[in-house]
């Protein structure tokens, strides 16, 4: 059973933390199609968050087609999430870019900030 870790100081909305951790579990193969997500009651008993927050996260996952609610039974995984494979040409280009960034004297933090700002620009408004 998936266990959610809620970080109240992270600045990330609690329901989004649940969405993100569920997606991470899908990417890592911890959750597979047919698996049941913990019930709202189970999640809130362990995390002391509001039940509506869990339901909001599950609705969001359902809207994205990743899970489905079956009345009286629970919420079940429908799909997996594939990450970009390690052999993808995109990864090679990014590695090449990171090497050049380092050669120009940028620190790890500089690169992370740059990458994040480009991500924000190109994926603005998208779901995480």
């Amino acid at each position: 059973m998936l266990e959610y870790r809620i970080d109240r100081r992270s600045g990330v909305a609690t329901y989004l933390q649940i969405v993100q951790q569920t997606k991470q579990a899908l990417r890592m193969g911890v959750l597979e199609p047919g698996d049941r997500l913990p019930t709202a009651r189970e999640v809130v008993e362990a995390t002391a968050i509001n039940p509506n927050t869990v339901l909001k996260a599950y609705r969001e996952l359902e809207r994205e087609g990743l899970v489905e609610a079956r009345r009286g039974l629970g919420t079940f995984v429908r799909a997996t999430l594939g990450a970009a494979p390690a052999t993808s040409p995109l990864r090679g280009e990014l590695a090449d870019w990171a090497r050049r960034a380092r050669e120009t004297g940028l620190t790890r933090d500089d690169v992370a900030a740059l990458f994040t700002s480009v991500l924000d620009e190109h994926f603005e408004g998208d779901d995480t």
């Binding site: 609690t14 009651r41 809130v44 008993e45 362990a46 509001n50």
Partner: peptide, 29 residues
């Protein structure tokens, strides 16, 4: 957690007071 489980199960309305917000953040809507 026990309180939230109860509201999840039975839909209890809760009013909880505190002068420390962090005690309640996350649990209250």
């Amino acid at each position: 957690g026990a309180l939230m489980a109860d509201t999840a199960e039975r839909g209890t309305t809760v009013v909880v007071s505190s002068h420390i917000l962090t005690e309640l953040e996350g649990a209250c809507d």
